[in-house]
Write a protein that binds this DNA or RNA. Structure first.
Lengths: 295, 295
DNA sequence: TCCCGATCATCAAATTTCGTGATGGAGAAG
DNA sequence: CTTCTCCATCACGAAATTTGATGATCGGGA
């Protein structure tokens, strides 16, 4: 036989990878910094490879660390799933949960209702805001757990889904042919940056015709032919026309959806919600995105 | 936080589920029987549910045990995968590996060559035989690890793939229209049973026209219109015509492909090969595979 | 029916493992 | 240059686990 790895070590390892710090990770897993340090030491000894490169201030994953991370995450997800199955609805408490409003409309109702069914005693207090504001609110301690779009903001979070971004216009509308191109998007929307960058690259003139932090407002701006918008796949609505990529406008970068938690929001009800969300809408789950054996 | 489960306990748990015995499981995981017993006790305490029902002689999974087994197996698979990635070809030894010859033809070469690439120091000694004989050879200690088709033989193994079974005939042949229906199959082929049963059910007369333990021979019997055969999806060959189900012949039961190991063949190189096979050709990976409580 | 063999649970002792708090060194910021 | 933060390390003590022995239970064979 060979004794299996220690999930506790892997949890610490993932925590470090997520937040880039031993000290912070230690807080998250309720241990002292030295305990975490030794766990990693043992893990590295066990696997015979350096997993984390400590260059002075910053802690980063090595190639091997990368390969491990993806798999460790999968294991921890399953672990959370098990704990979830066995906590027969006896979990209770409340969670202050934030989500960008474009997701709220479509995906959220089904996800939360099925969660409510399995965890009737957990009250989920939902607030919808743009990602930027969610992150801000998180910093101020107003959320326990948020789903947000990892954009330019270099915030760490556990990524669990990528989403195609599309340029959309109304059916039969003129907006696309207008010069300069009228575009619509959230003011702080982290996708705007990519959209603008893409437009600059192809030298297309544009103007921001409409801005709102409310996704519904953007959608209606598009539907009424006020402007061309850029939306994630799951926010597309009937009546919208997706603009073929490379035809008029180049393809946008995929959006990366991640979960972020307050430092106290680990384990118990928080894991239950997080794993439920990941299981329901995660899409990069299956195999690991990347690396096989390193070099 | 909440400390994750102990993979070591889960390993013992799965071992028990696989072989239906604490004592035997203890041997497999290199522990004493009492250690295993206490591990399960702790695991059950931790999850707050009975996982194994001990009715006198027999040990069986409870409903909760069932739910756990599938997930624990997934975790252990990932664990093996990790160990595999990190054992940089420093694993060495030889494995006596058996596989039914119908699989050997198509899938085996690619699987084994990629295995050879990542584990150059492991010598895989392949022998091809029908499942029945593989099981027999396993009992006699002639194999370390086999892939076989779980049929009527109530042998426990870790199932990792199901395969559609098809009735096949040659293109433009007469065999299908012949009365009684001439069929071809391995003598001890565990699928034959199902095929015959299906024919009896619809009252179709048949005769066994051709029998051989060599899959190639069966295939050529079909191709030369000597008989109608029944083959797994991955043994289909160009020139064969799949008979639409429910038209002339009812659908066959899916074949269940499983891995079985000798009692010493756990850990190290054996895990490496087993996890490679499962990763390469497993198809019921994602969600749970079935637990195989052996009575 | 009675005994034997095998199986699983339990116990206390021994051992191993693990976490803690303190300490030290190294790098970054002021 | 000093100070702060961060990670590694150490020795000690606590906790968890394994062990070997023992007991209880169940089936099979005589």
């Amino acid at each position: 036989m060979t004794t299996p790895l220690d999930l506790d070590q892997l949890q610490s390892f993932c925590a470090i990878a997520d937040c880039g710090s031993f000290t912070e990770a230690a807080r998250r897993v309720n241990k002292t910094q030295s305990a975490v340090s030794m766990q990693i030491k043992r893990l590295e000894e066990r696997l015979g490879q350096a997993l984390l490169s400590r260059d002075g201030r910053t802690v980063a994953l090595t190639e091997y660390g990368d390969a491990l991370y993806a798999r460790a995450r999968r294991m921890l997800r399953i672990n959370a799933e098990i704990m979830d199955v066995f906590s027969d609805g006896d979990l209770k408490g409340s969670i202050r949960f934030g989500v960008p409003d474009d997701y709220a409309v479509r995906l959220l109702p089904v996800i939360l209702s099925s969660f409510q069914r399995t965890h009737p005693k957990i009250v989920v207090d939902v607030r919808c805001q743009p990602s930027e504001e969610l992150l801000d609110g998180m910093k101020k301690g107003r959320y326990d757990l948020i789903v947000f779009t990892q954009g330019t903001n270099h915030e760490y979070g556990e990524m669990f889904r990528t989403e195609r971004m599309f340029w959309v216009a109304s059916h039969g509308g003129q907006a696309l042919a207008t010069e300069p191109l009228p575009i619509a998007g959230g003011l702080h929307c982290c996708w705007k940056e990519n959209a603008v960058e893409v437009l600059n690259r192809i030298g297309r003139d544009y103007r921001i015709a409409y801005t709102s932090s409310n996704a519904m407002a953007i959608a209606s701006a598009v539907l009424t032919d006020l402007a061309v918008g850029f939306l994630p796949e799951s926010a597309l609505q009937p009546g919208m026309r997706v603009i073929a990529e490379d035809k008029d406008l180049p393809r946008l970068r995929d959006a990366e959806i991640a979960i972020m938690r307050a430092s106290h929001a680990y384990g118990g009800i928080y894991d239950a919600l997080a794993s439920h969300i990941v299981a329901s809408m995660g899409n990069l789950d299956g195999k690991d995105s990347l690396p096989m054996a390193a070099e």
